[in-house]
C-alpha cells in the first residue's frame, strides 16, 4: 500500500476536504438539534435540560427481563474488553454490537444519538488533531499539501483517532441498553448486590434526585436575573454575578441538605435505605451474560490476532 510514503496533494484538495467536512458537521449538528428538539420548544437560550436515565424501564425485551446484576457485569465487562482493542475495525464491529443491543432492547435511537452528541466534541477534536499532531515515524504515510509544508496529515494518526472514536461510540451506545432498561433504583440496588457499599449507592440516588430540584431552582434564578436585564457576556461583571449565583446555589443547597436529612430522620432513617426489590436468577440471565462476555473476548482476539 502506501506505507512509508509521502503523498503530495494540491492545496485545493485540502480546502475542499475542509469545506466538505465543515458542511457535513454543520448540517449533522443542525439536523440532530432539530430531531432532538421537535418535541421541545426552545424555552431558553441556555439549555440546561437533564435527560432521564431510566426512560424506558417499563418496556419489555430481552434486556428488560435481564437480571440487573448480570446486566451490569456483562455489559461493563464487554465495555472494558472493547476499550482494550486497538484497531478501528474492531471498534467498528463493537459499535455494530452496541447498535444491535439497542435494537434488541427496543430502545429509541434518538436518545442514543443524544449521548453521541455529548461526546461528539471530544471525538471530533481527536479526529482533527491526532492526524495533524502525531510525531512522524519512518513507516508513516503522510499526506502533504503543496505550498503548505508545515501541515502533515498522518494517516496512522487518522487510524488511531478512528479507533478511539469508534471505541468511545461503542461504549456510549451501550449506555442506553445498560441504564434505560431497568429503573435507576433497581440498577443501584444491583450495584449494592455486587459489592458497592450501601451508603454510596444511596448517595447516587439522592444526588440524582436533587439534581432536578436544584436545576429548577437554578432555572428560576437565571430567569430572575434575565428579566432584571442581566446578560451573560465575556466580562468581569458577568463572572461576579456568576460567583454570587453559585454562592446562592450553594447556600440554598446546604440549607436543603439539612432539611432533607431531617425529613429522612423523621421517617425513621437509621443509616440505610430499605430496598423494595426482589432478585431472581434464571438460566437465561447466565446465558445472556455469557453471550456478551464471550463476544467481547472474541472481539479482542479478532483485534489482536485477526491480522490488522
Amino acid at each position: 500500500m502506501l506505507d512509508g510514503q509521502i503523498v503530495q496533494l494540491p492545496a485545493s484538495i485540502l480546502f475542499a476536504a475542509l469545506a466538505v467536512l465543515f458542511l457535513c458537521w454543520f448540517f449533522a449538528c443542525r439536523a440532530l438539534r432539530r430531531l432532538l428538539s421537535t418535541a421541545q420548544p426552545v424555552a431558553e437560550e441556555r439549555d440546561w435540560s437533564v435527560p432521564t436515565i431510566d426512560a424506558d424501564f417499563t418496556g419489555d425485551s430481552l434486556f428488560h427481563r435481564w437480571d440487573v446484576r448480570f446486566k451490569l457485569v456483562a455489559l461493563l465487562g464487554f465495555a472494558i474488553l472493547v476499550v482494550a482493542t486497538r484497531s478501528p475495525w474492531s471498534a467498528l464491529l463493537a459499535c455494530g454490537f452496541s447498535l444491535a443491543a439497542i435494537a434488541t432492547a427496543k430502545l429509541p435511537f434518538l436518545r442514543s444519538l443524544r449521548r453521541l452528541m455529548a461526546i461528539s466534541g471530544f471525538v471530533s477534536m481527536f479526529l482533527l488533531l491526532m492526524p495533524l499532531t502525531l510525531a512522524t515515524r519512518p513507516d508513516d504515510t503522510l499526506l502533504m499539501f503543496s505550498d503548505i509544508d508545515w501541515l502533515r496529515f498522518n494517516l496512522r494518526g487518522l487510524g488511531l483517532a478512528l479507533s478511539i472514536a469508534g471505541k468511545a461510540c461503542a461504549v456510549t451506545l451501550l449506555m442506553e441498553p445498560l441504564l434505560a432498561t431497568s429503573s435507576l433504583p433497581r440498577t443501584v440496588e444491583g450495584l449494592v448486590k455486587l459489592g458497592v457499599p450501601e451508603k454510596v449507592a444511596q448517595m447516587i440516588l439522592l444526588s440524582h434526585r436533587y439534581i432536578f430540584v436544584f436545576l429548577e431552582e437554578t432555572k428560576r434564578m437565571a430567569t430572575g436575573m434575565q428579566v432584571r436585564g442581566f446578560q451573560w457576556r465575556s466580562n468581569v461583571t458577568t463572572l461576579q454575578v456568576a460567583g454570587n449565583f453559585l454562592g446562592m446555589l450553594f447556600v440554598r443547597s446546604f440549607e436543603r441538605t439539612h432539611r432533607v436529612y431531617a425529613a429522612m430522620q423523621a421517617r425513621g432513617y437509621q443509616g440505610r435505605f430499605p430496598a423494595p426489590f426482589y432478585f431472581k436468577v434464571t438460566t437465561g440471565d447466565w446465558l445472556h451474560a455469557a453471550f456478551w462476555l464471550v463476544t467481547g473476548v472474541a472481539l479482542l482476539c479478532f483485534d489482536r490476532f485477526g491480522g490488522f
Partner: peptide, 11 residues
C-alpha cells in the same frame, strides 16, 4: 414539612 421536595427524596 413545608417544602415537599425535602420529603420526597427517593427516585
Amino acid at each position: 414539612f413545608q417544602d415537599p421536595d425535602d420529603q420526597l427524596f427517593c427516585s
